[in-house]
Simulated scan of single mutants.
Amino acid sequence: MRFGPTPRGARLARHLVAVRLDEWGFPHDGDTAGTVCLLVAEPAANAVVHGRVPGRDLAVRVSPFSPSAAPAVLRAEVTDPRDERRPSPVPAAPAPTDESGRGLLLVAALADRWGVCGREPGPAPGKTVWAELDLR
């Protein structure tokens, strides 16, 4: 799904991911949906603030992976057009008085795996922040 690079676009991304997860059998009020929505919301908010290029959308993809019929992993990806502004693989803790800077710490704490890679597919510049949640 593609969204405008605005706070409204980031909120809409989170909402539509919740709808899609509900369609897949992960209810809105369940732990899995709440966690995956956060794994989308934080990178989407960062994309709006740090990865925004006027006129270029951010993209969100949530996909189930499984060697069998039921998904074993849910993967969330948020892609923005700014390749040069990649987050650190080990997020730094903000000062106690800082009002922001905790989003990727939440992603690191809640995801079973997460990282950053170049934009896929194609030659357009950008990066993808991804996070995976193992379904238990």
Rank of each mutant, 00 (worst) to 15 (best):
R2P: 00
F3R: 07
G4R: 15
G4T: 15
G4N: 13
G4W: 02
T6R: 11
T6S: 15
P7K: 11
P7D: 09
R8F: 04
G9K: 01
G9L: 08
A10H: 13
A10F: 04
A10Q: 13
A10C: 10
L12D: 11
L12A: 14
A13Y: 00
A13D: 03
A13E: 00
R14H: 10
H15M: 12
V17G: 11
A18Y: 00
A18L: 08
A18N: 03
A18Q: 13
V19N: 09
V19A: 09
V19R: 14
R20C: 02
R20D: 14
L21A: 05
D22A: 15
E23I: 06
G25P: 00
P27A: 01
P27F: 08
P27Q: 02
H28I: 03
D29P: 02
D31I: 11
T32V: 15
T32W: 03
G34S: 09
G34N: 03
T35K: 01
T35M: 05
V36T: 05
V36N: 03
V36R: 12
C37Y: 00
L38D: 01
L38R: 13
L38P: 01
L39N: 00
L39Q: 07
L39H: 05
V40C: 04
A41R: 04
A41S: 09
E42K: 01
P43S: 09
P43Q: 04
N46C: 06
N46W: 03
V48W: 00
V48L: 02
V48Y: 05
V49C: 08
V49T: 14
H50P: 08
H50K: 12
G51V: 08
R52F: 02
P54S: 04
G55E: 01
R56H: 14
L58E: 09
A59V: 12
V60P: 04
V60G: 05
V60K: 12
V60S: 14
R61A: 15
